[in-house]
Design a protein around this nucleic acid. Sequence first.
DNA 1: CATATCTGAAAACAAGCGTTTTCAGATATT
DNA 2: AATATCTGAAAACGCTTGTTTTCAGATATG
Lengths: 214, 214
Amino acid sequence: MDNTSLRVYGGVEGDDRRAERRTQLIEAGLDLLGSESDDVSLTVRGVCKQAGLTTRYFYESFTDRDALAIAVYDHVTDEIATTTLEAVAAAPADERAKIHAGLKNIVDIVADDPRRGRLLFSATLTNSLLLHRRVRSARLFASLLGEEARAFYGMSGSAALEPTSQFIVGGLAQTLTAWLDGTVELERHQIVDRCTEIFLAIADIRRSSREREA
Amino acid sequence: MDNTSLRVYGGVEGDDRRAERRTQLIEAGLDLLGSESDDVSLTVRGVCKQAGLTTRYFYESFTDRDALAIAVYDHVTDEIATTTLEAVAAAPADERAKIHAGLKNIVDIVADDPRRGRLLFSATLTNSLLLHRRVRSARLFASLLGEEARAFYGMSGSAALEPTSQFIVGGLAQTLTAWLDGTVELERHQIVDRCTEIFLAIADIRRSSREREA
DNA sequence: CATATCTGAAAACAAGCGTTTTCAGATATT
DNA sequence: AATATCTGAAAACGCTTGTTTTCAGATATG
């Protein structure tokens, strides 16, 4: 726990060795949590074996399995959130362009590292803590979408916003899941294009219902 | 295993006693798998306690936990599939009416028995076997939707059909999840209406893209 | 009544898990 | 060279699980 009296070992500073081991554990955790085979659970012995470390070092960096799972999840979601916001901001001030840029960034990340994709979207993930984390993320994403739409279309407090955002979030997750596991066979850009079209179509419901209200 | 030499006991036939215990186990399994608290897992001891039976009788009706989980899941999905198909068939030959009738039947069932709803849609279910079962169901449902749309709109083999169907299935599941756990606060009929609108909007993508193709 | 079966409760066994501790050898420090 | 720390491997403890077995008492059958 304490970092007092950490010697150099193997030519490496004590803090660096700890940080290195922590990184190895997070990477190994991502290997397991994002594994293609679904019946691998995140056990202390398992993640240490994957990391090439012994169990003693697990508790050097994490209090328990849950702490590691959270670290892995946040590691992935922080990156995806940051880059997606950047991509959306950098896109032209056009509805379709913004949505397309955001979706493209998400699809690129989960395609380049399928572990991340499965961690975020796999329908067969069994880790309870991560499933709850996902629910939180979905709520957050849905709420962001709702605000964005509200601002864009200048709606006040339309009650239809919330279920619609939830629908979009779930639909995207399901589509990417099916794409990642091979059920849907499309090129990367085709997935992005299709999802963009669906986003826009659902957004048009608001527009037309708003016109009806007016 | 064998039912030879089964006596009457407590005034009940041997086969009836077995069937009764089996029913109790399935009901108890649904209690646990559809529990509001997510950290209850389907253990033999747990389900027997819930059923008011002892572990000895578990193996009288099921070879292992997985067999019970499958029995519970199929018990629920069989009913929902049958009644939904009936509801759709009984509805007027109108696109909106068919979709509305099907959705209403699903929403009614999961609202009347939240255990069923959570078993089918909860985002925090951790039972690996059931999660795989869900994937299969989602694939089946998506494929049915695709065929229906193909027939309705007379499309040939549009590649956009599959991701779109997956999107709808996932969106519906997410919306119902959020509704069941209280994240989305709407009346029962409002959920049905909203989802119907979204269904139709996504179907309109096909229609308009088909018009573009023509 | 005597015998065979059924029932409920508990014990038993092996396996996997989280977590802590032990320990011999490798490496740095003085 | 002597001492303190770091490392990797393994053992240890207690708990939960799946699964099977034991056993005393309740109930039916001849």
